[in-house]
């Protein structure tokens, strides 16, 4: 099970779209840095992200939300300790 670490906004970059396209059924996603916007504002990936969230596979980094003055509409919020814990519970990570 891979932990996909996505850092770029889906409004400017294809990283999130491409990572979703190349993920396996159990993989987890953690949105950090500019990518946190993906669960705050509706993008083309909205439906895919909602599906991920329903399967409890979508996480968003608390510190990066607060830093940008953003509030997530869905996705499970974790802090850096949660980030470490996600790394432990997945077999490997890809930093996109």
């Amino acid at each position: 099970m891979i932990l996909h670490l996505v850092k770029s906004s889906p409004f400017s970059h294809l990283s999130l779209k491409n990572a979703l396209n190349r993920s396996a059924e159990q993989d987890l996603f953690l949105l950090l840095q500019d990518a946190v916007v993906a669960v705050c504002v509706e993008s083309d990936l909205h439906n895919q992200l909602l599906d991920l969230d329903r399967q409890e596979r979508l996480y968003v980094l608390k510190e990066d939300l607060s830093a940008r003055g953003l509030t997530n509409k869905y996705g499970k919020v974790v802090d850096y300790k949660g980030f470490v814990s996600l790394s432990c519970h997945t077999s490997a990570s890809i930093s996109w």
Partner: peptide, 12 residues
């Protein structure tokens, strides 16, 4: 995706 899942470490 299947090949990625087989790896223990991934660097991009």
């Amino acid at each position: 995706a299947e090949h990625f899942a087989q790896q223990q470490q991934l660097i991009r």
